[in-house]
Amino acid sequence: MLSVDHVTAGYGVVPVIREIFLEVGEGETVALIGGNGAGKSTLLKVISGLIKPKGGRVFLERTELTALAPHQIVDKGVIQVPEGRRLFPRMNVRENLLLGGRNVRARQNIAPLLERVQILFPILKTKEKQEAGTLSGGEQQMVAIARGLMAMPKVILLDEPSLGLSPLIVGVIFAALSQLKQQGLTILLVEQNVRLSLKIAEKGYVLENGRIVLSGSGKSLLENGQVKASYLGI
């Protein structure tokens, strides 16, 4: 559904990511793992249109996304939940959610969408009027994911959802992700928590120093010696 075709991109002269080839099938959950600075967030920025690649192309089904503006890519259904949550701090939870659902397709269905996310994360209802900047890390992540869901995504890109959260909350988040996966959502998951993300993913890619060095099914990567050594500390 989403394919990244030999994308090379960076911020200055030297590219951060090189010749990235990646595919996410419909309904699949794909994990992208790698250390800090490997280029994971850069890739997501390219997919979302925030950076233009120096080479390569991005496709959603048959539509090319590479040259589109970020808001157009959102309208096509590629939604990113950015690293660090990036909620609008001085707006309340409800307003953040409404912003999430403002694209062309979603805005027709605001009421049912709101209901659905509130069932997924009940605090969205109870803390509706609270300013987003005052929420805890875990709560913010829930709002961020919900905000992404409000956009009626065809593909959702999650950038490090477990970052900075306690294991308990991470468990809650991943449980929700499993639920969404079962509902058929297509997910590209960028994560540092390798174990949990490979468990939930059908397929995985390992990104090191800007290149894909390994790929395979979630299970096979979990048992892969290199992966175990570098990322699982085994």
């Binding site: 979302s48 925030l50 808001h71 959102v74 950015p82 909620l87 609008f88 001085r90 912003l99 956009a151």
Partner: peptide
């Protein structure tokens, strides 16, 4: 409040 995040929401900045 956050220009990049706004872009990710589909706002035509």
């Amino acid at each position: 409040q956050d220009r990049e995040a706004a872009q990710l929401m589909g706002v035509n900045v």
